[in-house]
Design a protein around this nucleic acid. Structure first.
Length: 472
DNA sequence: AGTTGCTTGTG
DNA sequence: ACAAGCAAC
């Protein structure tokens, strides 16, 4: 029997993998991974993500080997060359069908559509499965039949309509009879602009992902609602890199919640239900990327905000990137990002809002910087978060929502522990003084004065937004 | 998933 | 003073 080809992308796992399960049910499977260096570069993925990706593919290759599924590697520099590359692989191994799990941002969706066209034209079957979401984009719509543009009603509808079947884990295939086709060695990473962070920080693969899920739910899940906002505490799941590359599925997460929460997702333990909400945010932004493709073309979700007078401020942008804005919470967070490839969720909001509101610098520059550094960098969530912070996005984020970085710091790092960890120059100060060191202290601290004054920057941002038309 | 400034009440 | 409540941004 002719084998099926399974094309892996951001679904680097053999458990609960819709495409793999479907293909294996039918017969023998050959797996393929495509390296699209030029496309990844154009999309702005950085060294941390690419390194994590490569290590994840290596782990996948080993898992597949235990199932006697060979993983092949090919280069398809840009997405445009993907259909021909995959067709060549299919012919080479004699496959008559292709299975993959869909990706929803515009370039990926188009690439996938072209692959299906090419296979169909060649008389081969090709199936794009919905795997990364409980509801395919378009399946959850408002009463008027529109794609949701606000999170809360989306989440309500998600909870109302979700079924056990949608969240059921896909069967893991058993080992198949060995094929004559051999697995291929993992290609090298392309030359990278930055050096990836120490790989021990983020061990790749399904095993580490499952361990981390288990440990999170066992020790921290029940405290999630109370602790997730405090960057000095490891209160969040730290699973985003694994979810972004599919080393872990949302179903695995939700099944673990169901098991630990008496079979409920929407009520029961406050920590676990809060975390379910965060998983639904991920799905919401996939729907937004698919339903409003303009956001994938560097456009604002709220069209009228395109008229905002973003400032051209290179020194300000550099100071933000390098963690020397003079706002300790912003600087500590940016240093955490650059040093570890990860930033606490609360601080992503604080730093993003600071760039977009206090510096009035185009959110797209911050979005790109985050993607370049984040090990969990993923278009839909990153873009959604940035547009939320910049008040150009979904969820009707009021333009006047401007974090006071000092207040955020005092509220969410009350003991100044996170500040001391990332800004050793401030560690000697009493905790309360770390949030906003007085100007008299700065020279001897070797720490910069604030590059903008909060009150004036806030007023400037409010004025800029007020100048937009539909906002009144 | 916010902040500010003002009012009112309390000591 | 300072906290709580509230409207407006």
């Amino acid at each position: 029997m002719a084998p099926s080809l399974v094309w892996f992308r951001s679904d680097l796992r053999i458990h609960d993998n819709t495409a793999l399960t479907a293909a294996a049910r039918r017969g023998p499977v050959v797996a393929v991974f495509l390296r699209s260096t030029a496309q990844w570069r154009a999309h702005g993925h950085g060294a941390n993500k690419l390194d994590f990706w490569r290590r994840g593919v290596a782990a996948l290759s080993e898992s597949l080997a235990e199932l006697n599924i060979p993983l092949l590697h090919r280069d398809a520099e840009t997405f445009a060359t993907v259909p021909e590359t995959l067709l060549a692989v299919a012919r080479e191994v004699g496959a008559d069908a292709l299975h993959f799990n869909r990706e929803y941002p515009l370039d990926e969706a188009r690439r996938d559509a072209r692959v299906i066209e090419a296979f169909t034209a060649a008389g081969l079957a090709a199936t794009g499965h919905h795997d990364a979401v409980a509801f395919a984009p378009g399946e959850l719509l408002t009463g008027k039949g529109d794609v949701y543009g606000v999170f809360t009603p989306f989440a309500r509808a998600w909870h109302r309509q979700v079924t056990a079947e949608r969240l059921a884990l896909r069967d893991t295939p058993g080992p198949q009879a060995p094929l004559t086709i051999r697995a291929e060695p993992l290609p090298e990473l392309p030359p990278l602009e930055d050096t990836p962070v120490d790989s021990r920080q983020w061990p790749a693969g399904e095993g580490p992902a499952a361990d981390r899920l288990e440990r999170f739910l066992r020790f921290r899940g029940r405290h999630y609602a109370d602790q997730r906002d405090y960057p000095a505490i490891r209160g969040t799941s730290e699973l985003s890199p694994y979810l972004a590359l599919g080393m872990l599925s949302h179903r695995q997460c939700l099944q673990a919640v169901l098991a630990g929460n008496g079979g409920a997702l929407a009520d029961g333990d406050a920590g676990l239900t809060a975390w379910v909400g965060e998983l639904i945010w991920r799905e919401f932004y996939q729907h937004v990327a698919a339903g409003f493709p303009r956001v994938c073309r560097h456009r604002a979700f709220q069209a009228h905000t395109e008229a905002l007078p973003w400032r051209d401020d290179e020194p300000g942008f550099r100071a933000w990137c390098e963690g020397r804005t003079g706002y300790p919470i912003v600087d500590a967070a940016m240093r955490q990002l650059v040093a570890t490839g990860w930033m606490h969720n609360r601080l992503r909001m604080v730093t993003a809002m600071f760039l977009a509101k206090h510096l009035l610098i185009d959110w797209r520059r911050g979005e790109a910087f985050f993607l370049r550094h984040l090990v969990d960098g993923e278009f839909a969530a990153n873009n959604g978060g940035w547009q939320w912070a910049a008040s150009t996005g979904t969820d009707a984020a009021p333009y006047f929502r401007i974090f006071n970085p000092t207040t955020q710091s005092q509220r969410f790092d009350p003991e100044g522990r996170f500040l001391a960890e990332w800004l050793p120059e401030l560690a000697g100060l009493p905790a309360r003084a770390r949030h906003a060191p007085g100007r008299d202290l700065l020279p001897r601290l070797d720490y910069p004065a604030p590059i903008v004054e909060h009150k004036a920057a806030r007023a400037r941002a409010l004025a800029a937004f007020k100048g937009l038309s539909p906002e009144r």
